[in-house]
Design a protein around this nucleic acid. Structure first.
Lengths: 251, 251
DNA sequence: AAAATAGTGTCTATGAGACACTATAGT
DNA sequence: ACTATAGTGTCTCATAGACACTATTTT
């Protein structure tokens, strides 16, 4: 971040004293987080059932108001932790949504974030009734974009609050594009993983099969993987080598 | 956009009537636009000299407050037109900046946009004193990212207001990444252009030389170019074919 | 031994870079 | 004719996909 370079100008001090923030339009800013995971060949998102109007009983992303003294990143991290208990996950700003009527209560602009979480890290959350994991039904291929649908465990479509279907669609579009040149697949796996598991994560995100040989070569040539010398256990076939990410980001 | 699906629930109507927006934190939201162009092997940005504190006499991006009834995209388009006269340009949301102290007056979150404008379209603006074009000095290569510096026509560094050096840096990073798979180069050229001009735009954005043969093949194979049958004139060497973009976005 | 997946070696197709060559304008 | 750049043809090299083959575990 660049920093201010004229902080002690007395002229400026006088100006700031006279400045009245109320003279300019002020509106609400929220942060919403699309926390995504992969499991069983599908993308899943963490959602919260709305208890109140508007969109009562619809499903919404965890999120809330940005406080006056916190940055947007801090707000995203705080709100995700407060509403779902998730901490220390890969979190990145996605896009800001600001259609005037997106919230019927008042003008609210939301800065959307997405998080990538290993499925195993979500298992203990699933028991708590407040937050639920739901499968994403993406009707478009590639990076076309557009809203997605939510499917419950029986495969029934569930209603989504506000424009959160657009936010989730944007998150899917973003991670599909990013997967080609940034190793985000690791964020969806435990620290030690097999190449097959990594390939499954990629195939789930991209929603298309990948060539096994080429995928192996590409990953090993990337220099981002490190063989641990350990192997899978109890797998009913030849066990695969376990790898780790050499620059496993602590976040 | 998804739309609301429960608009006439009387219970919800009652709820909305009781809702008081003042009960929640409200802050200022602005939109800032990094309008970029290419010329003479460099990237240029459109800047406005600040007349008032804070950052008096520093250079700032065109921008301003989002009005209550307009979308973010509309605000970006309106503010760019109001402050620079530019209309109908390629405009896309970039990133939202919300460090608590980024504006010393009050808490302001800005949704940054970037615009791509052909150099020729900027020529008539240059005479007006209020807005100025300045060369971008990007100290990092590739998509590393980071703030940039402004250079005036004599090559002297100029001060940048707020965190606008970060916004400009983010814009450069974004268009470098996007150039590989989205044909944004056309936005920086007139409707008819030669392959050499298109290559120069790419080289300027990426800040590295590109292979001529490979570039030609790639562009012609993309299916996005259409030969017009016309040729350059008065060029002092064999004139090149003029091409047009087959899906020239009207925006 | 059978089943299942891990992992290797090799051939081929494709695209990028390099380079030599021809083409066509102005001077 | 000379200069400068446009545009073509071809060779090589790197990488992805395809496929055959071997390796190693559980049952």
């Amino acid at each position: 971040m660049s920093r201010r370079n004229e902080a002690n100008d007395p002229d400026e001090q006088a100006f700031l004293k006279e400045y009245r923030a109320e003279d300019f339009p002020r509106l609400s800013v929220t942060v919403d987080v699309a926390a995504l995971s992969t499991h069983d060949g599908s993308l899943w998102a963490l959602l919260i059932k709305r208890q109140n109007h508007p969109f009562q009983d619809s499903w919404a992303l965890p999120g809330g108001f940005v406080q006056m003294a916190e940055s947007l990143d801090q707000a995203a991290s705080r709100l995700l932790a407060e509403e779902t208990g998730l901490k220390d996950v890969y979190l990145e700003q996605l896009y800001s949504f600001g259609e005037p009527q997106r919230d019927p209560r008042t003008r609210v602009i939301t800065v959307a974030y997405y998080a990538l979480v290993a499925w195993r890290q979500l298992q203990h959350l699933q028991s708590e009734g407040q937050t639920t994991l739901m499968k994403l039904d993406v009707e478009w291929s590639g990076e076309t974009g557009g809203p997605i649908h939510l499917l419950d465990h029986e495969g029934t479509r569930q209603p989504i609050a506000f424009d959160h279907a657009d936010i989730l669609g944007m998150a899917v579009k973003r991670i599909r594009g990013k997967l080609d040149y940034v190793p985000i697949g690791f964020q969806l796996l435990l620290p030690r993983f097999t190449l097959r598991q990594l390939q499954e994560v990629h195939e789930t995100i991209l929603d298309r099969p990948l060539n096994k040989d080429s995928f192996r070569r590409r990953m090993l040539a990337s220099g981002l993987l490190e063989a641990t010398g350990e192997r899978e256990e109890d797998v009913g076939h030849r066990p695969a080598e376990l790898y780790r990410f050499t620059r496993y980001s602590a976040i």
